[in-house]
Design a protein around this nucleic acid. Structure first.
Lengths: 257, 257
DNA sequence: TAGTGGTCTAGACCACTAG
DNA sequence: TAGTGGTCTAGACCACTAT
């Protein structure tokens, strides 16, 4: 541990920095188990609580994970799903492939979906606002969990006005069929014209952290996607909470006038 | 504290949840000081260490901030700068306003900039890759810190190939003049046609956390923006690290074919 | 059963802020 | 000077994993 002559930093920080340095130097490789807390306390001549606090700092920074009863491990970087505008290409979903699975496969990932809830609910403020209705108005909702390579990476809730859900009965089914909900909506005579995506960053709440199996120190992206018809009427609002270590967003657009 | 009959959750978690509930209920308002650790330990009939751990959990979630010697406070949500595609509108920057300041003003925010470094540097991999050159090739860089309402919110580094920096001398000046660097580049005969933005989420490193004055539990967005000319040649690569609590991204695009 | 990390206590002392 | 949060110790006991 490189303790400078006037190193006034707290012991726990110096221990954390030393471990981080070893990780970055490859001395502890991704997935590898670290020495036990007891061993580290011996090495650094400090109490267990200090080692514990140092490990907490590194967990917060997403460098370590701990498993009770097993040990402490260098975190392996998850594979990110790139989230670009071209995944919305009409040619792709109108041709019949399941949009999520096909898009993931293109990136060499295996995707699946789990329906958490399907039915009517009072519209939450964020959805109501974008649908142009009153908060609390009954809307149809599809709550799903998306998994990549078996790990949950996204909690996605799609909201539809009741009238639209009536006009597009597939939206009330678990399986919306080839091309997904977008294809069914267009078949019912609507046209999807524009998409607006809003992204915010934050730390997960407790339940989100559990549902997404997030390691400590992993932020989430909150993505609000609104799909509009050619006259600017909102057809769908999706609110998704996405594991920050498993996503990257890509946008490509012309310089606006 | 609503301790159910079979509440097996750790005490520190129950304490944290109870405090969170009070914050969400408005019992502790944003900016308000919480009772001292000692007082909370008395209230919850637990040790100081448990209160401390509960507070750590809430800090990680971005709900509390602590100031040594002063106390513990409910975190006030920072005002976010919306980061939309229309801020790149040619009509805006070509008309002479300072792009950053004007855009922030439109949102009721006060923006300013601080130049951290201006000169030549070996191209980092992320920039070189997108500029289509070898990593390590000397490039011109503008490193700036952006402040919103006086708080630093963005560390932005723009990279230019050496030849372009020669052709656009303003890029080597602190002040690029009305309309900023984009205006100067077009005046030199280039044309900005497309923009690609890539966003990733992560926790800040120590230095980033310090430079952006980030409260604990605040993630950062890493934004890589590449600007292309009409023939698809990259003109500028900007790599920005943005405080997660002070930004929201907006994209609006047609459904691609 | 042995070994790991997780929770919790009681208490000493330090660093910073405010009056 | 008094009061705040921060660091650190020593140790007890619990929960989970492996063998």
């Amino acid at each position: 541990m490189s303790t400078g002559p006037t190193d006034a930093r707290p012991l726990q920080v110096r221990v954390a920095d030393d471990i981080r340095a070893k990780i970055e130097a490859g001395e502890y490789a991704p997935g590898q188990q670290l020495p036990t807390y007891d061993a580290l306390a011996d090495t650094y001549l400090c109490s267990l609580a200090v080692v514990r606090k140092a490990a907490d700092l590194l967990k917060q920074q997403g460098l370590l994970i701990t498993v009770q009863g097993k040990g402490t491990f260098v975190r392996e970087r998850a594979r990110a799903r790139r989230h670009g505008t071209d995944r919305y290409s009409r040619s792709r979903w109108s041709s019949g492939s399941a949009i999520l699975v096909a898009e993931a496969a293109r990136q060499g990932l295996e995707a699946s979906q789990l329906m958490r809830f399907l039915g009517t609910t009072p519209a939450p403020a964020a959805a109501a606002e974008r649908l142009g209705i009153e908060t609390g108005t009954p809307v149809h909702v599809r709550r799903r969990t998306t998994l990549i390579d078996g790990r949950p990476n996204q909690l996605a809730d799609s909201y539809y006005e009741a009238a639209l859900a009536e006009a597009v009965p597939a939206l009330k089914e678990e399986d919306t069929g080839p091309g997904g909900g977008f294809a069914r909506i267009e078949e019912a005579g609507y046209r999807l014209a524009r998409i607006r995506e809003e992204i915010a960053l934050r730390m997960p709440t407790g339940p989100e952290s559990a549902a997404l199996q997030l390691p400590e120190g992993t932020p989430v992206a909150e993505l609000v996607r609104t799909v509009y018809d050619p006259r600017g009427r909102p057809l769908e609002v999706m609110i998704a909470v996405i594991a920050g270590d498993m996503v990257a967003f890509d946008y490509d657009f012309p310089v606006p006038d």
